[in-house]
Structure formats: C-alpha cells, structure tokens
C-alpha cells in the first residue's frame, strides 16, 4: 500500500503539473480539494482519467469521486480494491 501511495503522489504531481510540490509535501490524509492541495474541478477530471488509464477503473457515478478523491489514503484504498490493471 505504501508503494501505491508513493506512486499515486508521483503521478498526481506529474499529471496535474503541481509545480514546486514534492512527494514529501503531500501527506496521506491531506485533503486533495479545498484547503489541502487546492485542486479544482478540472483536476477532478484529470484524476478520473488517471484512474481509468493507469488502473483500469471506470467511475460510472461521478458522485463516487467525492469520497474516493478525499485524500491519497482514500484513493489508494479504492485503487487497491478495484484496479483491473496491475
């Protein structure tokens, strides 16, 4: 799980082009949206595409995103349970 979280942080930094942010700056339980990393709705779309492309997870219900994208912790848990790509 720790390796997955690190990989996820690296991918998010890369995909969202988070300038001046390193893996160490993102805590596992930090909020991704709002006061935490400050991501927005366009980033949410990028994360949905990332889940599909890298882990083979299609989010059928966008409302699910609210819970899944709370933090790195929640994302990693969801990916571990639902991934179809290794």
């Amino acid at each position: 799980m720790e390796a997955l979280k690190k990989e996820l942080k690296e991918r998010i930094i890369n995909v969202l082009n988070l300038e001046d942010i390193t893996v160490d700056d993102i805590q596992d339980t930090d909020a991704l949206f709002g006061d935490g990393l400050g991501l927005d709705s366009i980033d949410a779309l990028e994360l949905i595409v990332l889940l599909d492309k890298e882990y083979g997870i299609k989010l059928a219900d966008p409302k699910q995103g609210k819970e899944i994208f709370q933090s790195i912790e929640t994302m990693a848990q969801y990916i571990a349970q639902n991934r179809t790509k290794l």
């Binding site: 995909v15 082009n17 366009i42 779309l45 990028e46 595409v49 599909d52 492309k53």
Partner: peptide, 13 residues
C-alpha cells in the same frame, strides 16, 4: 497514444 481515449481537458484548453 491513447487510441482516442483518456483525453484530458488541460492540453485541449
């Protein structure tokens, strides 16, 4: 590269 899938909005904008 992605065979017309996984297109994200940022580069398009």
């Amino acid at each position: 590269e992605n065979e017309e899938q996984f297109l994200t909005p940022t580069a398009f904008i």
